[in-house]
Nucleic acid binder design. Structure first.
Lengths: 134, 134
DNA sequence: GTAAAACTATACCCGATGAGTATATTTTAG
DNA sequence: CTAAAATATACTCATCGGGTATAGTTTTAC
């Protein structure tokens, strides 16, 4: 029941971009070195963060990455969902047809997990990257 | 970020044992049919529940499975941990040496995830199988 | 005391996913 | 034009999740 390693790297990359003082873009090499993330892997996950409107990028000679909005507007949930999609504690909460009992609506377990999932999502969205910077 | 399918089956099996009215043991066939769980798979996960002291079993002709303690003493967390081990939102919360930055102690992300994980565990342990029976 | 009904222990298979790598392409500054 | 950067696509490889198979062992009815 882990969150992905990619998501963990994503958290670190975003935090790095939030914390660096200069407003210039940071290139992948720099982020990779500071956060100890395999560069090819970093390069692969950045587009997801861009599509989600969390990070902006610039190609070319003095290109690199920067935050697309202020740190206090980026939650842990934003980054997690950008990289690994919507959270779902079990597969029938994601897609009811996957329940082998086909009983998700009146299934007490399902209902409990749903509530727990909502609490989890709430916690993840309450925490933003400005909080993490202190 | 799913919980295991095995855990989901475990929830159902325990709930079934809690809900059946007769105090006799239920054999694997019966549980499997009622809860739509592949029998071989069910047979594989039951020993974990037994080791955790949640379920008791009896071999032989009129053998089967029953709860080892009352439903209100069995939480979702009990079953989850019995089957898939302690929860950990990411690998460095499970084992610090797995953090590629080797920085878990003073890592704000780590700290946040730890708090969220504790909340999640709390929610899972607050809910017991007597609640689910209604 | 033996046969059948149960659970138990191992061990295997296979597809999906996670983690990471490689190659080729596009963009931009200078 | 060229070098430095990001992007796109596709690949590898190990692990894990889900499930199956085989061969037991224990218990009880008769």
């Amino acid at each position: 029941m882990y969150i992905n390693q990619a998501t963990d790297y994503g958290f670190r990359a975003v935090l790095y971009l939030a914390q660096k003082d200069s407003p210039e873009l940071a290139d992948a090499q720099t982020i990779s070195r500071h956060e100890v993330i395999p560069i090819r892997f970093l390069l692969k996950i950045m587009p997801s963060l861009i599509k989600a409107g969390i990070v902006k990028s610039q190609r070319g000679v003095h290109g690199g990455y920067g935050l697309a909005r202020p740190p206090h507007d980026i939650s842990l949930l934003d980054v997690l969902e950008a990289i690994e999609g919507p959270i779902a504690l079990n597969r029938c909460l994601d897609d009811e047809t996957l329940c082998s009992k086909q009983a998700s609506v009146h299934c007490k377990i399902h209902q409990s997990l749903q509530e727990i999932q909502e609490q989890l999502a709430g916690e993840l969205s309450r925490r933003n990257f400005a909080d993490l910077m202190d």
